Computed example of a mutant assay.
Amino acid sequence: MKWLLLTTLAVFLAVAVAEGEVWEEDDHEVLIRSERGTKNQECRYSKGGWSECDPKTNQRSRTLTLKKGDQTNCESTKTMQKKCRKACRYEKGTWGECNPQAQMTRTDKLKQGSDASCEQKREITKKCKTKVAKPTKGKKAARRNRN
């Protein structure tokens, strides 16, 4: 668990340093600090709401408005963007029989109220589980008697 936390922190810091800024975000605002070695600069921004998803880019954006900081060193507004998550919800179908390639398939249908850009049906394929024959009690007892 510690390893995962340290790795996540290292990646976050690497990205922040690469962009020249360190971001801290809570429910109400975003704090942006400039990279170490430059003039100590803190810019606090109020967060606007997220826009609707743009179907062409599959991204949504939010505008940050300067709340506290030096207006000569801080941008008055910033824009954050992130990928949209499609709201595709499916009703699961039933699994078919195993085919000669040891795979089975099911077809799921899109539930009502899902994103209109989602596929109406999706097909899921997975490997069949092979059943390993377990020795019965009678066979175990017979083996014990032979030894």
Score class of each variant (00 low, 15 high):
10 A>I: 09
17 V>W: 09
18 A>P: 04
18 A>G: 15
18 A>T: 08
19 E>F: 04
20 G>M: 13
21 E>P: 03
22 V>P: 07
22 V>D: 05
23 W>F: 13
24 E>F: 13
25 E>D: 14
26 D>F: 01
31 L>R: 14
32 I>D: 04
35 E>K: 11
35 E>V: 11
36 R>M: 12
38 T>C: 03
39 K>E: 06
40 N>S: 07
44 R>W: 08
44 R>H: 10
44 R>D: 07
44 R>M: 06
44 R>S: 04
45 Y>F: 12
45 Y>L: 05
49 G>E: 15
50 W>H: 07
51 S>R: 00
52 E>Q: 14
52 E>N: 13
53 C>P: 10
54 D>M: 13
56 K>A: 15
56 K>N: 14
60 R>L: 01
61 S>Y: 06
62 R>H: 04
63 T>R: 13
68 K>D: 11
69 G>E: 00
70 D>R: 04
70 D>E: 00
71 Q>F: 04
78 K>L: 15
79 T>G: 02
85 R>A: 14
86 K>A: 15
87 A>D: 15
89 R>A: 12
90 Y>T: 11
91 E>H: 02
93 G>L: 02
94 T>N: 09
95 W>Q: 12
95 W>P: 11
100 P>M: 05
103 Q>N: 13
104 M>A: 04
104 M>E: 15
105 T>G: 05
105 T>Q: 08
106 R>A: 04
107 T>A: 01
108 D>A: 00
112 Q>H: 07
113 G>R: 03
113 G>K: 06
116 A>W: 04
119 E>Q: 15
122 R>K: 07
123 E>N: 06
124 I>S: 04
126 K>D: 05
130 T>I: 09
131 K>C: 02
132 V>E: 14
132 V>Y: 09
133 A>P: 05
134 K>C: 01
135 P>E: 09
136 T>C: 15
138 G>L: 06
140 K>G: 05
140 K>Y: 10
141 A>S: 08
143 R>H: 00
143 R>I: 03
146 R>D: 09
